[in-house]
């Protein structure tokens, strides 16, 4: 049963160019939390900005009953969060969503993060370490100071490789290119990833080519966080996938997948799933990114 109520901010400090780390004392929530899940946080008690902000669990400390949230200040809501002092009360709901699951076949995995998408990977890395699963962590960011948490990961004794757009740390280029190169050498049997949609789209092109299966954690604008409002949906392969041959101008649904008459084309039928409650973690074979 998710917790919903007030919790105490234990730490809230700047840890990167626009990045903050908030630790919250909330034992009822912490004891239920699993890697890949998120919390829904109110930035203040007023009506503007109105919505809660979904923040992934960056740290889960079962012993002390605290969770850590690593977030980037991108707008008014996250700025208000960043201004919360130690000892402040924060209105928090969670844990929410479906997190990562570690399949039995996974023995040598890639953990791939882009930008602030690295945040939810830390509890996963700890779980993988606990299960003694070989892992290589590949992080992507625009430059060295935007790569968050390498020190923390190094202290866990896991292999970390970075890719930066300007080459100021590690590989110069996209993390997805680095993944493409390292797949051939390390030959992982599974992967976990989180990052912006364009990165995940490029990543799935690489992993699908290599036949590598995995899980991705998605980001989307969210409303309720509990599966009620249907705002944060993503396209997934329909459970009853239909192959529709066109030529008869058949409309697959009232919306987008309209197949023009006269062209022979096969479309994958899709269904919208809820990022907040069906995800945020989905099977890599399941998600469809638009062109």
């Amino acid at each position: 049963m998710p917790y919903s109520g007030i919790a105490e901010v234990v730490v809230n400090k700047k840890v990167g160019p626009e990045h903050f780390l908030m630790r919250v004392l909330v034992p009822e929530l912490t004891k239920e939390a699993k890697p890949g899940q998120f919390v829904h946080v109110r930035c203040h008690g007023e009506m503007d900005p109105l919505l809660r902000r979904p923040l992934s669990l960056h740290g889960i400390d079962y012993e002390h009953g605290t969770i850590s949230l690593l977030y980037q200040v991108v707008g008014r809501g996250t700025r208000l969060l960043a201004e919360m002092p130690t000892g402040a009360e924060v209105d928090i709901m969670g844990p929410l969503g479906r997190g990562f699951t570690i399949p039995e076949k996974a023995q040598n995995v890639f953990v791939i993060g882009g930008g602030i998408g690295v945040a939810p990977l830390f509890p996963l890395v700890q779980a993988l370490k606990h299960y003694k699963i070989e892992q290589t962590i590949l992080l992507g960011a625009r430059s060295a100071d935007w790569v968050i948490g390498t020190g923390q990961l190094a202290s866990l004794g896991v292999k970390v490789e970075a890719a930066t757009d300007d080459g100021s740390l590690g590989y110069k280029g996209f993390v997805t290119d680095l993944v493409g190169k390292r797949i051939k050498v390390i030959k992982p049997d599974y992967f976990f990833a989180c990052g912006p949609n364009p990165m995940l789209k490029a990543l799935l092109e690489v992993t699908r080519k290599s036949g590598l299966d995995g899980q991705v954690s998605l980001e989307e604008r969210m409303g309720c966080g509990v599966g009620a409002c249907l705002a944060c949906v993503c396209k997934t392969v329909a459970s009853s996938e239909l192959l529709v041959a066109s030529g008869n101008g058949k409309t697959v649904d009232s919306g987008e997948w309209r197949v023009g008459s006269g062209t022979e084309k096969t479309v994958r039928e899709f269904e919208y799933k809820k990022v907040c409650s069906d995800g945020p973690v989905f099977g890599a074979g399941e998600v469809i990114f638009d062109d």
Partner: peptide, 16 residues
């Protein structure tokens, strides 16, 4: 019904 394409939500002053 599948519904509309995303984004499906935007925050506005004291509203959505």
């Amino acid at each position: 019904r599948k519904g509309n394409a995303t984004p499906r939500i935007a925050e506005t002053p004291a509203g959505i």
